[in-house]
Computed example of a mutant assay.
Amino acid sequence: MRAYSFPASLFPLSIGILFSMPITDEEVYFLPFLIFSMLCLHGGTNLINDYVDYSKGLDGKHHPGASAFIDRKILQKGQVRKVALFLFGIAFLCALPLFYYGGIPVVILGSIGIMGGYFYTAPPVSYKYRALGDIFVFLLMGVGPAAGVLFLFDSFQISSLFSVLPLAFYITAILHGNNIRDARHDSQYGVHTFAQFLGPVKARWVFVMEIFAAYAIVLFLYFYYGNIYIFLPYLTLPLAIRVAMTVLKSSDTDTTLMYIDKDVAKVYTLFSILYCTGILFFTGPFLQ
């Protein structure tokens, strides 16, 4: 289920929770439902993606994005689909208390999130294959979870939502790096991604802009909040530069990008830990 990617959706939730402080004792009981629903949704999305990609012949045995479940014969292809649907069902059930407490905005955002996860690759929408994966991942895995939490705890503010954008850009960079690596392979199967649309050179520069947009927004937020601790994620800047240079110097025929999605995910995870820590320093008084 590519557990290394789970922080991609959990950290935006954390941003929403931090900017919702203080939360009441009653609201604390919703946190396990919130987190477990998000994990099941993310896991279901990954598995339905694996199922559809295998069905289309996209992920062969030696492809770096191939499913370990199918590749190692832990589950048959049809079983992967059943597990995915089961996880979507659990995600929906866990979301029901959140829908009841949060009202219409949470119902709308949660429903869009669940449907967006399923139709990422599943027909008839399959928006991943229509060069729309990047924008939907930005919205549904970056902005959406934080917005849902803010509405759930009646704490929605534009400034709070803006604060999740560094994570949204990094999450999109994980997918975009993956699509740069797979561009030639995907084109053989009629799959269209944003990276293909841009072409190899522009796609690589867009990847770099996505990475450094995260740091630029952090700089803007420093001037908005006046909190020096928000610069903590800048400690990851050397790692980000190294990943960016790896992508820029790569070609479509070498193997330097084989694990680019995992490499970006590692930097993103460290960035997010430091970013959430920095935010905690100025939301900290509300936790007391």
Rank of each mutant, 00 (worst) to 15 (best):
residue 170 Y to A: 10
residue 170 Y to N: 11
residue 172 T to I: 01
residue 173 A to H: 04
residue 175 L to A: 04
residue 176 H to L: 01
residue 176 H to Q: 09
residue 177 G to I: 00
residue 178 N to P: 12
residue 178 N to M: 02
residue 178 N to Q: 14
residue 178 N to K: 05
residue 178 N to A: 09
residue 179 N to Y: 06
residue 180 I to H: 07
residue 182 D to C: 02
residue 182 D to H: 03
residue 183 A to S: 14
residue 184 R to A: 15
residue 184 R to C: 13
residue 185 H to R: 03
residue 187 S to G: 12
residue 187 S to K: 15
residue 188 Q to S: 11
residue 188 Q to V: 09
residue 188 Q to C: 13
residue 191 V to T: 10
residue 192 H to T: 14
residue 192 H to R: 13
residue 193 T to A: 09
residue 193 T to Y: 09
residue 193 T to S: 12
residue 194 F to V: 01
residue 194 F to H: 11
residue 195 A to R: 05
residue 196 Q to G: 10
residue 198 L to S: 14
residue 198 L to H: 08
residue 199 G to V: 02
residue 199 G to Y: 01
residue 200 P to A: 09
residue 203 A to E: 11
residue 205 W to H: 12
residue 208 V to I: 13
residue 210 E to T: 00
residue 210 E to Y: 10
residue 210 E to V: 00
residue 210 E to D: 11
residue 210 E to C: 03
residue 212 F to E: 13
residue 213 A to L: 05
residue 217 I to W: 02
residue 218 V to L: 10
residue 219 L to D: 13
residue 222 Y to E: 09
residue 222 Y to M: 06
residue 223 F to A: 03
residue 224 Y to L: 14
residue 225 Y to C: 04
residue 225 Y to R: 11
residue 227 N to H: 03
residue 228 I to T: 05
residue 229 Y to I: 05
residue 231 F to M: 14
residue 232 L to P: 00
residue 235 L to E: 06
residue 235 L to P: 00
residue 235 L to R: 03
residue 236 T to P: 00
residue 236 T to Q: 07
residue 236 T to E: 01
residue 237 L to K: 04
residue 237 L to Q: 03
residue 237 L to Y: 13
residue 240 A to K: 01
residue 241 I to G: 03
residue 243 V to Y: 05
residue 243 V to K: 04
residue 244 A to Q: 02
residue 245 M to P: 00
residue 245 M to C: 04
residue 247 V to E: 04
residue 249 K to Q: 08
residue 249 K to D: 07
residue 250 S to V: 01
residue 252 D to I: 08
residue 253 T to M: 07
residue 254 D to G: 02
residue 255 T to A: 14
residue 255 T to N: 12
residue 257 L to V: 06
